[in-house]
Design a protein around this nucleic acid. Structure first.
Lengths: 76, 76
DNA sequence: ACCGAATGTAAAGCCTCCTTGACATACCCA
DNA sequence: TGGGTATGTCAAGGAGGCTTTACATTCGGT
């Protein structure tokens, strides 16, 4: 699962800590999601979308097979 | 996290097993999600949305506090 | 009465999500 | 040089997502 969180965060000039506080999760969680170590839970994905005033689909993109996107797991 | 999966499934006259096969998850997983025992992972939420040709937001609704929606956990 | 399909639920186990605490690096600035 | 901020990562642990196997109930059809 690819996401645009880092891009959206940097546009607002927020640190990972600032974003983590706004989302009420730990800084490590933000870092892990930005770096693709795991996907957020669905409730957290909703919180992220709400914070950036975007839809989940505008922030996250599932990885189709055979594309050039780097993904941890098949279609994730 | 509330969802309209049962409604969408019944409209198509699919059994939980049929839906589970289409999503490549177990029947118990479909049942648990329909009955609000837990939320799907984000990749599974994308698969559900794709199957019904809807957005995640059209299928899932996070629970705001103080509303009449029954939810397992706070804001989930 | 019996059968099969559909649904609900439970237990055990594995992997993922998220936490706290800690440590390392790099950078900027005084 | 030393301090503060930002980032990346690790370990250990708890909660949640998903699996298989299994059993119970309900319903429609014959």
């Amino acid at each position: 699962m690819k996401n645009r969180i880092r891009e959206l965060r940097l546009t607002r000039e927020w640190s990972q800590s600032t974003l983590a506080d706004a989302l009420q999760v730990s800084r490590q969680t933000v870092n892990a999601i930005e770096n693709g170590r795991y996907d957020p839970s669905l409730p957290l994905a909703f919180a992220i979308a709400a914070l950036f005033s975007l839809t989940i689909e505008e922030i996250f993109q599932p990885c189709a097979q055979g594309q050039d996107r780097p993904c941890r797991t098949k279609n994730a």
